[in-house]
Design a binder for these strands. Structure first.
Lengths: 336, 336
DNA sequence: TCGATCCATTTGATCGTTCCAACGAACGTA
DNA sequence: TACGTTCGTTGGAACGATCAAATGGATCGA
């Protein structure tokens, strides 16, 4: 059916091993031979049989990722984007991505063990890591390479590779942008105790403190538009000139409050989901492309970590958008 | 490292081939031998090396699916759910799922060709099929097994396997449910020309016609909450007692109109995304589990097709929800 | 001249499975 | 007794690549 190493070797008048070298370690074959071999490869449309290679080397060059069940929506979109970014960039590194499902953390570990043992995948990405994540210890103990997307909120575990988004830097940037439109920047977030949520609130506090302003307009509700709407109404009544939110879901609720109050106040969400694009409010883009790149970089090698800086995606909707950036730092400026 | 066929054979006192038979075609080995072999398998924790098997049989038992770039959000969530369902059910059939990305249809076909030739995946699922889809002819011609998620809206192509959701049945069910709360059921959909959109509008028209009511409250806008809100306001002004929408995005806009008008009117969306769950409006669930099952069923075999019936996910929010179902009949009861 | 070193290439073995042809034993039939 | 079938099992070859060791020439210093 398809051409094999031996076919190419015959055509180029060399041995199989030389063809193999030409493909895997070109620098050790003579330039003239290399050229001849490559010509034969092109002519025959040869592509190495990966099963044979994997059998021999017992490595798969494949990354395993669990697909989560996402009843909530927004979280799912993010993971989906992340998966897309990882897959796209993995292809550039000549790696494939195998997906699997699992009902809980233990089932996931079992799956990973199985996939790893059969060398169907030789490195894994853990998503949605939480407090005292069982998976981390299990994989570390089994010696299976992995990178976690999400920082370890406890520091009891053995050191492992992780990548996370610097939520604090994100809300700080959003708050700074909002400050340009008025001093009373409010924050609408989640109750204390969620690592990511606390970081996001911290960024707002930092920015307000640096500006010498009080961080008093602060509300905490569950990630639900109805609750957010009620809380946002209070913030507006208290004189908020803009609202920085811990998620697009909360921002959606805040915009509901704006609509009812007929107010015109910038709202900034977090995650830059389709909701933000649809309604036209600004949102903090987690920069998942950079996260994916960092994950791939850390997949092989000593434990290390990376903190990716998100960036504010400005949208200029007249009701709840942000005005164009004034300072001509990097990109184009417009009338203000 | 891991146990091999030869190890099991030695332990059970039989030849490699017998072990292979015990695993792949148990019926041809003697019951007593089978039991002895299986005991050895368990004891050694033997699992076949899939690379070796795939090399020998040149089949991968793996399904390839392209991950789409989804800037729009809602579409992405659906495909993500679908992917999850396929992966989960594929595992039950001892199959794996490999994902890949591609910038356009041609690139996707090229990728599929490559994956297929190297037998990294031996069957594929096409999503987001559109009018005169180039991919279908290309794959059919290349003899690569595939199933399309989405019916062929033109009938010019060669017959191929496809699975689709019966959108018409979905909006019909939604309309019937809405009729229980008032006669003036409106439809908020997309402009004519999109196959899926036309089907959804058709379901509403059918239900209204069966009930002997005029289908006059009908608006068509792009899939954008702002436009939807304006159109929904018109429908409310014209006396709509409920609004069936072609998507959750449109329903989101409709609810915005409700909020401003302080009206209390059932709204039904389509796709049952997180937005519907978050705001608490009813929505039509595409039943992607059933779609996935159908896809897997059709992946190997003669060209065939399946039309999956979606189901209405009722939510009883007081402002825009639906009352609990009155008739305890199973479902699919025609009004007349 | 001889031997050591290096470079480019080749040869044979191997990864773990399934395919293929052959095998002996048990059985029925002539 | 002899012969063809069927059943359960077996050993060797093959899938297509990489690994490890060996080969034959150049090149170079002693």
């Amino acid at each position: 059916m398809s051409a094999t190493l031996a076919d190419v070797a015959a055509k180029a008048g060399v041995s199989r091993q030389t063809v193999s070298n030409a493909i895997n370690t070109p620098r050790i074959v003579h330039p003239a031979t290399l050229q001849r071999v490559m010509a034969a490869v092109d002519e025959l449309g040869y592509a190495p049989n990966l099963h044979a290679r994997r059998l021999r080397t017992s490595s798969a060059r494949t990354i395993g990722i669990r697909l989560e069940r996402h009843d909530d929506g927004i979280h799912g979109v993010l993971l989906d984007r992340f998966l897309h970014a990882v897959t796209e960039q993995a292809a550039g590194l000549d790696r494939h991505v195998l997906v699997f499902t699992a009902d809980d953390a233990d089932a996931e570990v079992a799956q990973i063990r199985s996939l790893s043992q059969r060398s169907l995948a030789d490195a894994f990405v853990l998503t949605s890591t939480d407090h005292r994540d069982r998976r981390i210890d299990a994989l570390a103990e089994a010696g299976i390479p992995f990178v976690a997307f999400g920082r370890p909120w406890d520091d009891g575990s053995a050191p492992h590779s992780w990548v996370d988004v610097d939520g604090r830097a994100g809300t700080r940037e959003a708050t700074d942008a909002c400050l340009a439109t008025g001093e009373r920047v409010a924050f609408l977030g989640w109750p204390d105790g969620s690592g990511a949520g606390d970081e996001r609130r911290g960024g707002w506090r930092d920015a307000m403190a640096d500006a010498g302003l009080p961080a008093d307009l602060d509300r905490a509700v569950e990630d639900d538009p109805a609750q957010a709407q009620a809380a946002a109404a209070e913030l507006l009544a208290a004189g908020a000139t803009s609202i920085v939110c811990a998620s697009d879901t909360l921002a959606l609720g805040a915009i509901g409050a704006l609509s009812r109050a007929d107010a015109s106040v910038p709202v900034v969400g977090f995650d830059d989901t389709g909701v933000a694009a649809g309604l036209g409010f600004s949102s903090i883009d987690q920069n998942l492309g950079a996260v994916a790149a960092a994950v791939l970089e850390l997949l092989h090698g000593e434990p290390a970590h990376r903190l990716v800086t998100p960036r504010l995606h400005r949208r200029a909707n007249p009701r709840w958008g942000l005005p164009a950036q004034q300072s001509a730092a990097a990109d184009g400026k417009d009338a203000s």
